[in-house]
Design a protein around this nucleic acid. Sequence first.
DNA 1: TAACTTGTTCACAAAATTGTCACAAATACC
DNA 2: GGTATTTGTGACAATTTTGTGAACAAGTTA
Lengths: 221, 221
Amino acid sequence: MVEDEEPVRDLVSMYLKKEGFRVETAEDGEKALTMARSFAPDLILLDLMLPGLDGWTVCKEIRKTTSVPIIMLTARGEEFDRVLGLELGADDYITKPFSPREMVARVKAVLRRAKQTGEQNTVLSYPGLLIDHSASRVEAGGREIQLTPKEFELLWFLASHPRRVYSREQLLENVWGYAYPGDPRTVDTHVKRLREKLKNPGAKNYIVTVWGKGYRFEVAE
Amino acid sequence: MVEDEEPVRDLVSMYLKKEGFRVETAEDGEKALTMARSFAPDLILLDLMLPGLDGWTVCKEIRKTTSVPIIMLTARGEEFDRVLGLELGADDYITKPFSPREMVARVKAVLRRAKQTGEQNTVLSYPGLLIDHSASRVEAGGREIQLTPKEFELLWFLASHPRRVYSREQLLENVWGYAYPGDPRTVDTHVKRLREKLKNPGAKNYIVTVWGKGYRFEVAE
DNA sequence: TAACTTGTTCACAAAATTGTCACAAATACC
DNA sequence: GGTATTTGTGACAATTTTGTGAACAAGTTA
């Protein structure tokens, strides 16, 4: 949520959080770009009138690197060039003042659309690494490598949430199934085997240990 | 732990205590309600078959006042209406007989989920400094820097309460955990290490000493 | 049934973090 | 200026966490 007026930020945050969304806020364009780069949001609510970089520019910059859904916010008085907005890659726009319920509904609608078009995408691709979930196939450095089911699901989970750190317990919960009663150190062994199989061809070390926290899938800047 | 059969109570208590949990028990619904009101438990294990007030009623009563996580216990034979359970606000259920390890795993899973939903805004951003709690990542001057867990939590705490001065004792309490028995000067060492790691790229000195008081996170006006 | 694959656990070594102490430097106060 | 407090710093030992190899268990296939 990129918006310079704090009351609006708080209101929108509150309504979205109540719906179970996780919300991060930025009050200007610079910060928005930094944040968008550091973690991958599922959707961006972007006010057009911002101090410093304006919304159009922020939108254009973001579009250079990702196709994350963007909803633009615009004051009623402002002349809003819908065509320009869509050309820059916005997915929807809302005119202020808006009702919170309408805002939530639009966010959900855009996410639903994005999810549908993204659903077919069962392939994750990183430099020197290709993971195809529907085919259960992994290519590293152009060469196919054989993973066991657990290894594959672990890699898939980590790779589909890049950068984020997961504790051993969280990994057990998400990959093995919730409330797994076994030893958390089991994860270590699987990570070890994964690293071994992945390291052969590509030099990259994708699975990184975060000391005292767990593991994360690292992706180059 | 609400359960009328003493052997089960003892077994469950024993296993949970071995994991470091503090366990209080009640043998009927009346007592359970009194206890739930008198001290705030982090989680309630609730047997459905109880003398007097049954589990459903206890659950409903508790839900009127708090959102504490509840795990229901049910005998395999009993017909258990899962939907009703979830409607009444239970977070999970376990069928008896259960393995102690599974029970412990579920307790942990439910507690972890409850904790997660409470955690919000996970990204803090200041000029030349970005802290992402969910990724356990810190960027200073565009460059990622490696912090140890303690350093990270200390920085996170200070940065999420900018300008405010904290004494060493307060920092110990908030970052290390309440009633930390060690030397308050330990904080100094961590501050020193943090400053060293943060100073390399950006000229900014974010952590400022307030003589005779403690430390604070400085943010430019 | 035997060989094989897969997943889990364990024990030990290796690595990193953390807390403490002693002493130096800085600051406040007289 | 002198002194007492407070803070900064470097080194070291204790503790915690992770990597790794091997053994074991469960399930599958030939």
